[in-house]
Design a protein around this nucleic acid. Structure first.
Lengths: 147, 147
DNA sequence: GCAATAATGAGAATCATTCTTATTATAAAT
DNA sequence: ATTTATAATAAGAATGATTCTCATTATTGC
């Protein structure tokens, strides 16, 4: 999605939870939009050194509550953030366990839809209401493999 | 897997990393084996009040390094632990986001194998070596739904 | 048995994240 | 436009799960 469209989606999502689309929040969305992968707080602070750490934390919480941002937790003690799937598209993650790096990928359509049918059945059986699913591949990236 | 077999697997995994299968570690394995779901540190300490918190943390790290235990991180600030898949069987998790509760489930065999083929292809394309995959369903359990 | 080495546990230290609060910016109404 | 009310900001303090330290205790090999 391009910047203008993304801004419109975020603006309306924020409005829906009575939050403003302030300058700081625009900067966050812009940073996440131009990244092809989920970023840690520290990575965000490196990209835009004018941002205050506490504001970044708070605003990412607000954006998450609005449904514009998703927080991804891996095993390496630093949460990572990316734009939600109504902005980026549904996708999954492949995670390098040595270095913590994450890359987005898409599943072939027929695999994705087969999977979704199965998952819905399972949720029904267990009495769960389903919000979404996460599929993560855990492995080692080529650069960690060669070092 | 029954207790005797699980003990044997863990014993040999610990031996392989030059660690002892001590009494405290046996108690942890036993607790995890008799639980049908991943447990937090606090839940473990409630079940066996004789264990020291610091030892539980340390021993779970040792067991994780040995490949006997897996640490699961959700969004609720408490890691959960369960036995690895060579002891329990490959499975996935359905997570209740309001209360953090996790339940194990299995995918139908044909769905699981279709998925695995696709995932391997993707990892190959991206130059990753694949260790395993995680599939989590995020939703709301029936008891959270009714309250 | 006796070193030598590893495990234990109590409490201190760490560090990502959240909270507090005074200040600043924004929006609504007149 | 100015005022007023409300929300956002940012610096630093507080929180809390996890990790580290180290003196003590247990275990292994000789």
């Amino acid at each position: 999605m391009n910047k203008v469209d993304a801004d419109q989606v975020v603006a309306s999502q924020l409005r829906a939870v009575s939050q403003r689309y302030t300058n700081n929040r625009r900067r966050l969305v812009s940073i996440l939009l131009s990244s092809s992968k989920p970023l840690t707080i520290n990575q965000i602070l490196e990209v835009d050194q004018g941002l205050a750490q506490s504001s970044v934390y708070r605003n990412l919480v607000v954006l998450e509550e609005a449904g514009s941002v998703v927080r991804i937790i891996t095993n390496d003690d630093h949460a990572r953030y990316e734009l939600a799937e109504n902005i980026l598209e549904h996708h999954h993650h492949i995670i390098c366990s040595p270095c913590g790096e994450i890359i987005d990928f898409h599943l072939a359509d027929h695999v994705e839809s087969t999977l979704e049918v199965s998952l819905q059945e399972i949720a029904d059986q267990l009495g769960f209401t389903l919000d979404n699913h996460r599929l993560d591949l855990i492995g080692t990236c080529s650069s960690c493999n060669s070092s």
